[in-house]
Design a protein around this nucleic acid. Structure first.
Lengths: 320, 320
DNA sequence: TTGAAAGCGCTAACAC
DNA sequence: GTGTTAGCGCTTTCAA
């Protein structure tokens, strides 16, 4: 029953509630004596300030929103998602903030949760994937003066977008070199045209791949469908840009036993990899760090710090 | 700039803000004419009521907390976790509520996020896994009059705990029978003593397994370590109570090629299963439904409905 | 049916 | 240093 208010504490202490408020907010001008007295009384009575009321007075929510891409039904099962989330979470809790999950899926005839949270000012800032930053959401955020940070390099050509991303180019380069060092000499990369159009990170990974291949005097080759994996030109290794792609290749392998000998590689580890029929090579990307950095960037914006960086690029780390 | 307040709307409409408040809350006593006028003005000015202020007046947050077990570092990667979450989310958004993620990990010298959220009344209700409902958290919730629903059958002997769980006994029975119908005749179940002590769902699964085995005139056998998988008594199928256990068995298989022929089975599908070296049988449990039901139960509590069920048991569904 | 005014619990000018 | 007072934006008696 923490129904006790600042007013009652004030009465018990024989002071004005403003004085109590001052000790709550560690205001300077307060005598040691009354501060101690008030603190004691607060302890004794288990006083907890009402955060809603504080929010109303401060015009703040002490909450940030974390937005996930619901169009990807697998979002939750994606390691990408939860690793980033863990990083975000840590920073948010350290700052004594809470975090609200938000999705952007439409509700029949109603506002999406995203829109609702922004228009109602239910959070002080938002972390969202670049896939969700379309023009409409951008305008919404800007017109409501809502600070936000994008996860994944931003591609929308607009002002004032901060983003955090990993170094995909470098990661692909490392991964390709790893395959080369393992003796592979005919390495292709799997990337569908549509995905290249859509996702900047795939373009970057292609670039890193090409770089490494050409440095070793080989010729890069991009495939975007099963038909290109025919026996005349059978590669000895395939790099997959996502786990979904990896699964596709594994499906193909079923119908085509020739593929069984091919080396497979992708980005990000998964606990399942070690139990697959087919061994999978990978390079680790520091997703948790990406989450941390986004949250830290967001707090800089929320606190109106100066010289907030436009973007942060996380270096690739090589894990054995 | 949705900085417009109820007061300004009132002024524009030439009425008192109380009148505007009445149309906001669909109060009965209002003339059709003024209601229409006010509604028009609200539309024109894109008026959004301030939810913080509403919260203060209503003494509500319109938010529920979803608590996950952070001690399990894999919580996020666990299919259990996100499937339940999806169900929860759907119901919460349909009720125009938002949801806050909360963890229960300690912060040095400070309150845990869980405690903070409860004591500060940052949510109107909480959904949490049974593993987190210890005596301390229970007392906290009760003393703060915070409605909550437990996911997984409750085992704490206390008053007023509502829980939602799947029918683990039946699920295990179905799974066992599936293996029998596939021709297996020496099926064991893998469950460590410690886990049996800790998790009620394992006890239930053991029971369902025994039931099916005995109905077919066979003898149930529980193993709780690799050493029990020796060649004299090599089973022809192993049921794993969790995906973690499944991975353990797969690890053992590496060192012991004899195990390669054993049938493997577990609960809940995973997209990875179809790509494993070793085929995995499974029975699907409706985790999303568990999430939905928990959320619905919680709303009944929040809205002070009468005759709220003590607990809900979700039947097992058989997916091909 | 509507308005006036008090209040939700807290903060922040401004006085003293 | 501390009290007074006026908000923050909304709801809700109580009168009119």
């Amino acid at each position: 029953m923490s129904k006790i208010t600042i007013q009652q504490i004030a009465k018990l202490a024989g002071v004005n509630k403003a004085t109590v408020s001052r000790v709550l907010n560690k205001s300077a001008s307060i005598s040691e004596k009354t501060r101690l007295k008030i603190e004691t009384i607060m302890k004794e009575n288990n006083y907890i300030p009402n955060s809603i009321a504080r929010g109303l007075a401060f015009n703040k929510t002490f909450t940030v929103g974390f937005c996930f891409d619901y169009t990807d039904k697998q979002a939750f099962s994606n390691p990408f998602f939860y690793k980033v989330l863990q990083g975000v979470e840590e920073v948010i809790y350290d700052n004594d903030y809470l975090f609200l999950m938000m999705s952007d899926h439409d509700k029949k005839n109603e506002k999406s949760t995203f829109e609702r949270i922004v228009t109602e000012h239910r959070v002080d800032g938002i972390i969202m994937p670049n896939s969700l930053l379309n023009e409409m959401n951008y305008n919404l955020l800007i017109s409501h003066n809502m600070p936000f940070v994008v996860i994944g390099e931003n591609i929308l050509v607009k002002e004032g977008i901060r983003w955090v991303d990993v170094d995909n180019t470098h990661a692909a380069q490392i991964l390709t070199e790893k395959l080369i060092s393992l003796g592979h000499r005919n390495i292709v990369i799997f990337a569908e045209a549509a995905a290249i159009q859509r996702d900047k990170f795939i373009v970057d990974r292609l670039e890193g791949y090409k770089k490494a291949i050409q440095q070793h005097g080989m010729i890069p080759r991009i495939i975007d469908g099963q038909d290109q994996l025919n026996d005349q030109l059978l590669p000895d290794a395939v790099i997959c840009c996502s786990h979904e792609q990896l699964f596709e290749i594994l499906e193909w392998e079923r119908d085509n036993p020739d593929l069984a000998e091919i080396g497979l590689a992708t980005f990000d580890d998964s606990p399942m990899f070690r139990h697959m029929r087919h061994p999978v090579h990978f390079v680790e990307i520091d997703l948790e760090m990406m989450g941390k950095q986004s949250a830290e960037l967001l707090f800089k914006l929320i606190n109106n710090e100066v010289n907030v960086p436009e973007s942060i690029r996380i270096p690739t780390i090589l894990i054995n």
